[in-house]
Design a protein around this nucleic acid. Structure first.
Lengths: 180, 180
DNA sequence: AAAAAACGATACCGATCGGTAGCGTGTTTG
DNA sequence: CAAACACGCTACCGATCGGTATCGTTTTTT
C-alpha cells in the first residue's frame, strides 16, 4: 500500500492529528475511497503506521547487532546505531512515544502496538543484561530502556555532543558488574 | 486565570489537539470571549500552559532538593521525587515532550518554552555533576537527562518496579567517579 | 455615585475534520 | 471473452475546528 507509506511519512513528520486524510490523498495520489477500502478508519491507519515502524525498527536493530561477537559488542553496536539514528536529519523522536502522546486513550489500537513495542525492547534488553552479567538484571535493563527512550526524545540535545559515545559510556557504566 | 488552569488540566490529560476551545469553555465556565481577551490564540494558551508547567516543575524540584545536605543526597532526592511523580495516578508523561510531539514546527512558541525547559534541566544536572565530581561532567549530565526524560515517557513501565530505586541506582552508577 | 474595565451569552464565520455514496474506468482472474 | 475486482473521481455529509462580532451585565476603580 503506497498510501500507508505516504501516511507514515506524513504522520511522523507532522504528527498524526496534524495530518488530514485529504493531505494523504493529495500527497500519495491514492483516492480516499481506496484508502478507506484498506483501512476502515484513520485510527486503523495510525495503527498500521506504528506496526510498520515497529517492524522496521527491529529489522534495523537486528542488522546493527548482527556482526557483534560478544554481549558487550552488542551494547556498543546498539549505542552506535541509536546515536546515528537520533542524529539523522528529520529525526523527530520515537514514533511510538509520539503517538502515545497524541492519543490519551490507553485502549487506542495504536497505543497497544506502542506498548507491545516497548515491552519487546525491554525483553531484548533483559536478555542482553543477562548475558553480560549485569547485576540486578531487570533493573539494569529498565535503566537501559529509559536511557534509550530518553535519547529518542531528546529533541536534538543529544546531537550536540557525540550521541553514540554518550550512550555507549552510559551502557558500560550501567552494565558493569562491579561494586555498588 | 481560571481558564488557564482548566485548559492546562485538559491539555495534559487529553492532549492539546484533542481539546477544543469549546470544551475549555464548558469545563471552566469562562466565556470564550474572555479567554480570547487574555490569550489571542490557542497557541498562546498552549504556550502559557507549558510556561506554567515549567514554573511548577522547578518549584517542586527545588522543594524536593531543599533538605539535601550533600550533592549525592541531592541526586537521591531527585530520584525519589521523580519516582513518585511518575507513579502518580493520571500521570501521562512530560508535558513539554508531549507538546513537542504534537507540534512539529520547532518555531512554535510552545516548542521554544519546551526547549528552554530542557536546557535548564541540563544546566542544573551539570551543576550537580560538577559538585559530585562526575567524570566527563557534561556527558554524565546528559546521561542523567536522558534517563530522567526516559522515566517521564516510560508510560507506566517504570511503575511496575520501584521507580525511585531504579533511578537512584542508575544515578549512582553514572556519577560514580571510578574507573574507565 | 459615576466612569471604566472586565465578563458572560449568543450567534455566527469560513475552513476543515473523518467518512460515505455513486459512478465510471481499468485490470486482473477464471 | 466475461465476470469479478480494484481503483480513481467528484460530490457530498454532519460535526467540529479556531476565532470573531455584538451587546448586555457585572464588577472594579476613582
Amino acid at each position: 500500500m503506497q498510501a500507508l507509506r505516504t501516511a507514515a511519512a506524513l504522520f511522523y513528520a507532522k504528527g498524526v492529528r496534524a495530518v488530514g486524510m485529504e493531505e494523504i490523498v493529495e500527497t500519495s495520489g491514492i483516492a480516499k475511497t481506496t484508502i478507506y477500502r484498506h483501512f476502515p478508519t484513520k485510527d486503523a491507519l495510525v495503527e498500521a503506521f506504528l506496526k510498520q515502524e515497529d517492524a522496521e525498527f527491529w529489522q534495523q536493530w537486528d542488522a546493527a547487532v548482527a556482526s557483534a561477537s560478544s554481549a558487550d559488542a552488542v551494547l556498543d553496536a546498539l549505542g552506535d546505531w541509536i546515536g546515528a539514528r537520533v542524529e539523522r536529519p528529520g529525526y523527530r523522536g520515537c514514533p511510538q512515544i509520539n503517538v502515545a502522546a497524541e492519543f490519551a486513550d490507553p485502549g487506542h489500537p495504536a497505543r497497544i502496538v506502542a506498548r507491545r513495542h516497548k515491552a519487546e525492547m525491554l525483553r531484548r534488553l533483559e536478555a542482553i543484561c543477562q548475558s553480560v552479567g549485569a547485576k540486578p538484571t531487570a533493573q539494569v535493563a529498565m535503566q537501559l530502556a529509559l536511557l534509550i527512550d530518553g535519547a529518542f526524545m531528546s529533541d536534538g540535545r543529544l546531537s550536540m555532543g557525540d550521541a553514540a559515545a554518550t550512550l555507549k559510556a552510559a551502557f558500560r557504566r550501567l552494565t558493569s558488574p562491579d561494586r555498588l
